[in-house]
Structures are given as C-alpha cells and as structure tokens.
C-alpha cells in the first residue's frame, strides 16, 4: 500500500484531489448520452444567431442535441486536459488561438472525409476548421463626424494632426500590430513576418489619445456614447448598431481592413467526438454559413455561400481581395503570440 502511494506523483495526487472535489459537477455531464454535443459559444446576440441559424436546424436534421457553454477561453481547455475532465466537445475561437491550441496539441485530428474542402476560401487544417472571417476596421458616428471629418484608412487613423480626437483600439496585439504597420506604410504583401519594433514605434505615436476598451461590446458603445471619436471594431458589431434596438447607428470603413478568421476545433478526448465532427461539417456547408451570416453579419468562408446571402447582409460584406487589406496570419500568431502579448502588455501599461 505504501509503495503504491509513493508512486503517485505530487502533481497527479493534486490533480486527483481536484477531480474528487469537482466530481459533483462532472456527474451531470456523465448522464449525457450519445445524442448530445457540448459547444462553447461567444454569448450575446452572436450566439442567438448561431442558435437560430445553426444549432436548431442541426438538431432537427441529426437528432443530436447541442449544449452551449459560455465563453471560449483557451486556459480552460488547458485545465480540462490537465485534469482529464473534458466538459467541452467543440471549441470556438479566432484562427490565431485555434492555431496556438493546435501547436500545443489540444485538438483531435479532423475527419477530412466528411468535410467539404473545395468550396472553402480558407481550407481546414488537420485539426481545426475556419468557418467565418470578421473584418476589423474603423467605425465612427456619422452624425458627429460627417464625410471628410473621420479617417477611412489606417494611415489616417494614425494621423492625429488631421483627425485629432480620442481613438479606441483592441487591447490585443494580433491585428493591432498589423494595423499599425499598415498605417506606417508597410505593403500588405510584405506584412509577415511582422516588423514588431516598427509596429510599436507607430503605436507610440497615437498612444496618448488611445482608449483601450475592456470588452468587445465597448468598442462600439464608447463610440455611440461619444466617449471616443474613432473606434476600431468588427464589422458585425457596427452592423448591429444599424439594426432594430442597436442604439446610435455607426458607420464602418471598408477601404482598409484586417481580416480575422474564426472557427472550430474538437477538444482532445472529447466525450462526444463524432457528434462534434458532424457539427463542424454541418457548419462548413454553404447554406448553413449563408444562414448564419445573414444574421451574424460576418463573412462566410464558403465561396458558394457568398452568393446566397441576403441583400442586406451583402451590403456589409468586405472585399476580401481588397489590395489594401490584410488577412491575419494565424500560424504567425500561434508561433509568436506569447512574446508579442507580453511586450504588448508591458507597452500598454507603461
């Protein structure tokens, strides 16, 4: 008995102890049968769109019921893998985070035989699939700043002489460094690998007038409240302000954007792995993507889906082939996120 105990390492003992403590939470999930799948969702209006356009019809078609857990955080995936208590089957996040998880071995290999590969503008990798693209760009209140009184590209956004005022930017390095380099005159084709020093030098220029919203909804609400003159947000967020109940309607510039990808991966050891694969395959279908983006306002990765979108959604579609815009390189960020995030945090707090 003693020998057995001494064989258990401290870590595995602690992990085991945590497992025992977490047991009451697990039993609920253990009851779930083969006909379910648990996915992580972003919450808010976006998740409602996913619910209507994807989840409900998916359950109707396959009989698989979908549980939605709130808030994608890669740290939680790491904790689940560490404790062996896998609560999520399907994880969603930006391409950069999915690539980073892939690098750390967090995902199951995708079953490529059930995925429609040819139709996708961004093909799935071996362990995650991209289903939508979100354009990040400049937003402003057209009532406060009429034509000519707001920046439309990143160089103008960084030009405080021409457009003085409070600016808001996302407090994360991915995308923000690309925007800084575009503003500083780097050509989109020469973007990667990023000249990080040059990006920070460019950011230094506008730092004194930048507010860093703590949450994504704030990236539009601060502009709506007049707290910020020019914001940087996702096109879907700006589009929502023009819909019913959206508050002050904001404008969005398509003249220059950075494109962030987002998609899904199956967590390693997921209890409902097959169902999760089926759901990913479903989400890559053209008609499902068109249905989702009609409501969510992002850009489908399915080429066929683009022509299926409603007129209203098409008015808010960015031009992915715009030579002034840049697609964020997920692989670059998977390899460089940690160093860049530390430097960005030091810079932003200094």
């Amino acid at each position: 008995m003693n020998r057995l105990v001494s064989k258990i390492s401290r870590r595995s003992f602690l992990v085991g102890a945590m497992g025992v403590l977490a047991a009451p939470m697990v039993s609920r999930r253990a009851a779930a049968g083969s006909g379910t799948v648990t996915m992580v969702g972003w919450g808010g209006a976006y998740q409602e769109a996913v619910q209507r356009a994807v989840v409900a019809p998916f359950t109707k078609e396959t009989g698989i019921s979908v549980n939605v857990a709130p808030g994608p955080v890669l740290a939680k995936v790491k904790a689940m893998l560490l404790t062996g208590n896998i609560e999520w089957d399907l994880y969603t996040d930006t391409g950069a985070v999915l690539a980073s998880g892939s690098k750390q071995g967090f995902w199951e290999k995708l079953d490529s035989s059930i995925l429609e590969m040819k139709d996708l503008a961004v093909p799935p990798t071996s362990d995650y699939a991209i289903n939508e693209i979100s354009a990040v760009g400049i937003t402003w209140d057209p009532k406060r700043c009429g034509s000519g009184r707001h920046p439309v590209n990143f160089a103008e956004f960084f030009d405080l002489k021409k457009f003085a005022g409070r600016h808001a930017m996302r407090p994360f390095p991915d995308g923000t460094l690309e925007i800084a380099l575009l503003a500083d005159g780097v050509a989109p084709k020469d973007m990667y690998p990023l000249d990080v020093d040059r990006a920070f030098k460019a950011l230094d220029r506008i730092k004194p007038s930048v507010v860093w919203p703590a949450t994504t909804p704030q990236s539009v609400s601060l502009v709506q409240a007049g707290e910020v003159d020019f914001g940087m947000t996702y096109v879907a967020r700006a589009k929502t302000t023009n819909g019913p109940g959206g508050g002050v309607p904001l404008a969005f510039s398509f003249e220059q954007n950075v494109f962030a990808t987002s998609g899904y991966a199956v967590v390693k050891g997921a209890p409902n792995k097959e169902n999760a694969m089926t759901l990913i395959a479903y989400m890559l279908r053209p008609e499902v993507q068109a249905r989702l983006e009609d409501q969510a306002g992002n850009t489908p990765t399915s080429k066929q889906a683009t022509s299926m979108l409603s007129t209203e959604a098409r008015n808010w579609q960015p031009d992915l082939s715009n030579p002034n815009s840049v697609m964020i390189n997920s692989q670059y960020w998977a390899d460089n996120m940690e160093g860049a995030a530390r430097r960005f945090k030091e810079w932003i707090m200094a």
Partner: peptide, 9 residues
C-alpha cells in the same frame, strides 16, 4: 493576463 492570454500559470 498570465492566466488567460499567455497561459503562464
């Protein structure tokens, strides 16, 4: 930041 962004627990 260390917990969520760089997973440096």
């Amino acid at each position: 930041f260390y917990n969520r962004q760089v997973l440096d627990w």
